[in-house]
Computed example of a mutant assay.
Amino acid sequence: MLRRGYVDSRYKMDYVIAEEELKELINKVAKMQEIVRSLCEEKIDALGANIPIQ
């Protein structure tokens, strides 16, 4: 749905999205942000634990 929305909104001058679809996309993007934030924080913490302090 996100990919279709991106492509359609970019290339179709008459693109329209329903309010329910928009709400669903907002929720999916928010969830994706949470996952990415968590994964990045875990990776940063892991890298920080392996770097010797000078």
Rank of each mutant, 00 (worst) to 15 (best):
L2I: 13
R4G: 02
V29I: 12
M32L: 14
K23T: 09
I35M: 11
K43P: 00
R3M: 09
L39W: 08
V36P: 01
S9L: 04
L47A: 14
I35R: 07
V16D: 03
M1C: 03
Y15T: 05
K28G: 02
R4K: 15
Q54M: 09
E34M: 07
N50F: 10
R10Q: 12
V29T: 06
Y11V: 07
I53V: 15
A49W: 05
Y15H: 10
C40S: 11
R3Y: 08
I44N: 01
V7T: 15
R37I: 07
N27L: 06
R3I: 10
M13V: 14
A18C: 09
K28T: 06
Y15G: 01
D8A: 10
V36S: 06
V36N: 05
M1N: 09
I35W: 01
L39G: 05
D45C: 03
V16G: 01
K12F: 11
E24N: 08
M13G: 09
G48V: 02
A30P: 00
E21C: 05
V29C: 02
K43E: 13
K31M: 04
K28D: 04
V29G: 01
I17L: 08
E20N: 12
Y6V: 13
R4F: 10
E34P: 00
M13N: 11
K12A: 09
E41F: 03
C40P: 00
E34L: 08
G48E: 08
Y11H: 14
D45K: 11
L25H: 00
L22N: 06
L25Q: 00
I53T: 15
Q54V: 09
V29A: 03
E42C: 05
E34N: 09
V29Q: 01
L47G: 10
K28H: 03
N27W: 02
V16H: 11
S38K: 15
C40V: 14
D8R: 11
V16L: 07
M13S: 15
A30T: 05
E20S: 14
I17Q: 01
L25S: 01
I51C: 07
V29W: 01
D8G: 05
A46S: 15
D8N: 12
Q33T: 07
D8L: 10
E20P: 00
S38D: 14
S9H: 04
G5M: 02
V29P: 00
E21F: 03
N50S: 15
G5S: 12
I53M: 10
M1K: 04
S9N: 12
I26V: 13
E19R: 09
E19Y: 05
S38W: 03
E24W: 00
R10Y: 12
I17W: 00
C40E: 11
L22S: 07
E24Y: 02
L47F: 14
L47N: 13
I17A: 04
S9R: 09
L22Y: 12
E19H: 10
M1W: 03
Q54L: 10
Y6A: 13
Q54R: 12
V36M: 10
R37C: 07
C40F: 08
D45E: 15
D45Q: 13
I44Y: 02
K12E: 08
K28P: 00
Q54G: 12
D14I: 04
I44C: 01
K12Q: 15
R3A: 09
K43N: 08
K23G: 04
P52T: 04
I44E: 04
V16I: 13
I53N: 10
A18M: 08
